[in-house]
Simulated scan of single mutants.
Amino acid sequence: MRRRTRTLAAAVLTAIVVGGTAGWAFTGTQTPVTGPPPGTASWRADTSLGRPLPDPVTSTPRQTAAFFADLTDEQRQQLVRRHASVVGNLDGAPPALRYEANALAIRAGHDPRYRHLAGAGRQILAFDPRGRGQVAEVFGNLTKTQHVSVVVPGSDIDASTFDRTKDRDGALAGMARSLRAATGNRTAVVAWAGYTTPVGLGLDAATGRLADAGADRLTRFTRGLEAAGVAEPALFCHSYGSVVCGLAAHEVRVSDIVVFGSPGMRAHNEAQLHTRARVWAAKDPSDWISKVPNVELAGLGHGADPTDPDFGARRVDASDAHGHTGYLAPGTASLRAFAAIAEGDVR
């Protein structure tokens, strides 16, 4: 009984302590954004090409890629003009076409929070203004490089905080830029804020509800990259993002899964992830995540610490990183190791 009480207390503590990269207020629960992108009804009703358009829900990314490959340039442009918000989020569509479509959708939305995302040179691979907003941005040439990485963020990241200037190394776009720079800009990196993240402290951060929804979206996103001819990516998963990656591990087709500042992956060990990818884990000595009990009880907590030797992941040196968001800070051992993984230079 005493042991059960200690475990329950640890689970409650997890609910209190597990948080994100910013925003320490207690908050209500978030409603995950799921389903097809805005404008889908109009897309489904469009018969202008004399053939059905690929359904965003039922068509696979491979079917979507085959559909666009069969179109003329003018037909593709017609769809971008008529259905920018759908084309911009259609997994399997050509990345360059998605960049163009999302720039149009962002400008047409007239929301001042997102206007900067349509700036010159930005490559927005996904944009959904619903809820707090979701966005994915590409740094580098996604279709012409042999090495691609996808950075999956933790709590408090959305379209408005995606590239905040405060805590640049901890902001998602800053992490992606830092990782690419550490590879000598030889890789492409996707900053993927493509799921509804928890906000602040509360039950969302201590349960897997939002991670479940995020895992589905991450799986489809990575399959869309594959269908579009993009090299098999490596996943870099921060904080609560590592829960997302853990739940998606058995379905995503990736070379590596790297978790850092992780509260757990909803698995007792690497074998339970059921992935062929190499699994890596990093945690620096000053990261507050170490105070989070690694338990899972009645839906609370995220399970074993991936950096525990018994978990079975490959350990990444993070001894000189600082805090919960310093793993990709320039000059750190963890960033150097992450860059080597991103370039496929480790075995």
Rank of each mutant, 00 (worst) to 15 (best):
T307F: 13
T7E: 15
A182R: 12
G170Y: 10
A313I: 11
T161F: 10
R44N: 14
T64D: 08
R98E: 11
S155D: 09
P306S: 02
A304T: 14
F67C: 09
G20Q: 08
A181Q: 11
T325P: 09
V244G: 05
A282R: 05
P309S: 01
T219R: 00
V135H: 05
V150F: 00
P285V: 08
C245F: 02
N102K: 08
L335Q: 11
T275M: 12
A340H: 02
D70W: 03
V150T: 06
P233W: 03
D216S: 04
L328K: 01
V252Y: 12
C245L: 01
E226C: 06
D216Y: 01
N89F: 14
T183P: 15
Y99E: 09
A96R: 14
A45R: 12
A176K: 02
P330Y: 13
Q77D: 10
L235I: 11
L179G: 00
R44P: 03
R130F: 02
D169Y: 12
R168P: 00
G214M: 01
F311I: 05
P153N: 04
Q77P: 01
P129D: 04
H324Q: 03
D216K: 13
W24L: 10
G50V: 07
V190W: 03
H238A: 07
R186I: 01
R4H: 08
D256A: 11
L49V: 13
K291G: 11
R2Q: 11
P36T: 14
G174M: 07
V316H: 00
A339V: 05
F67P: 11
I341K: 04
I124E: 01
D46I: 06
A277T: 12
D73L: 15
G229F: 08
T325G: 02
A65M: 13
G326E: 08
V33C: 07
V18M: 10
L142N: 13
Y240P: 11
T183N: 14
F311Y: 13
G326Y: 09
H268M: 00
V295G: 04
V17T: 07
A342L: 12
D91Y: 12
A249R: 02
T275S: 15
R315C: 01
Q30I: 06
T332F: 07
G170A: 09
I16C: 03
L328G: 01
Y240S: 09
H322G: 03
G92M: 12
A66P: 02
L179H: 07
A282I: 02
L172V: 06
R4W: 02
A96S: 15
L90Y: 06
V87A: 04
V254P: 05
Q75A: 13
V254A: 09
A193P: 06
E74P: 08
V244K: 08
L300Q: 03
R4N: 04
R51M: 13
G323E: 07
R107P: 00
P309M: 02
A66W: 06
A84E: 02
S48L: 08
A176E: 03
Q75K: 03
A176R: 02
A176W: 02
T14Q: 03
P129C: 13
R6H: 07
E232P: 00
H302L: 04
A120R: 13
I341Q: 12
P36F: 15
T325Y: 08
D204K: 06
L13T: 09
V258A: 14
P330L: 11
G19Q: 02
D320N: 15
R336V: 04
L225S: 11
A228V: 14
T47C: 05
G23N: 01
E343I: 00
V148F: 09
A173M: 11
P54F: 10
D128A: 04
A321Y: 00
R266V: 01
